[in-house]
């Protein structure tokens, strides 16, 4: 059996989290059922499928798209998506002339109600360091080549506004219905690190 210096935190991260959870349960600061419900909400009910619905609706309904681009929060709420980390939304549109890319250089701000929880790379140092200073190199690592005639706009989420990219509707999708269009929309296309293609 290893001897522990028990005034230091356990080096095993899982043990240290378990210790904190036990303490907060014992003190009545949290309830076990509440913790389970929170995990379930973000693991099963909220994710990029929500944002994909918003995008497909905007592609097929010009009036909705206009509302979405002028005042995103109520337009997104029309489809039932609202909540923590999406209280004040801004949607930016990709066009043949403009490509948008989202980042949070200071922490990891991300629009949870429409995209779910962020992937590890979005929260990690390389992306946060480089997205503002060399976005085209970052995009190239994602396999996205943006022409010199296109303006790259990077949005650094430094305040409480949360951003989502409205990607361009791919060519060749004229015959698809809304559900088929939704299925084309990827998480990364709504961050700005992917372009979409018809399948």
């Amino acid at each position: 059996m290893a001897s522990h210096d028990h005034t230091e935190p356990p080096s095993d991260i899982a043990l240290r989290v378990k210790a904190l959870e036990s303490l907060l349960l014992d003190k009545g600061l949290v309830e076990a059922e509440t913790l389970d419900a929170i995990v379930d909400l973000y693991e099963h009910n909220i994710g990029p499928q929500n944002g994909a619905r918003v995008v497909a609706r905007a592609w097929t309904d010009p009036e909705y798209k206009a509302r979405l681009l002028s005042d995103a929060t109520p337009a997104i709420a029309e489809l039932g998506y609202r909540g923590a980390q999406g209280e004040d939304m801004v949607v930016v549109e990709n066009t043949p002339e403009v490509h948008n890319l989202l980042v949070c250089t200071l922490c990891s701000c991300y629009p949870w109600p429409v995209l779910g929880l962020p992937p590890v790379w979005y929260k990690a140092a390389p992306y946060r360091a480089r997205a503002v200073s060399e976005p085209r190199a970052v995009l190239a690592e994602f396999g996205v080549d943006i022409g010199d005639d296109v303006e790259v706009r990077v949005w650094d989420s430094t305040a409480e506004l949360r951003y989502m990219v409205l990607p361009e509707r791919p060519a060749g999708t004229e015959g698809l219905d809304v559900e088929e269009l939704e299925a084309l929309v990827t998480r990364d296309s709504m961050i700005g690190t992917a372009l979409l293609e018809a399948r």
Binding site: E33, I38, L41, G83
Partner: peptide, 21 residues
């Protein structure tokens, strides 16, 4: 601060709280 019930916590997160003043 007292613990929130599962129902209250989920409702709070689903509603959000704008930082606007």
């Amino acid at each position: 601060m007292p613990a929130l019930t599962a129902e209250t916590a989920v409702a709070t997160l689903m509603a959000g709280a704008s930082a606007r003043i």
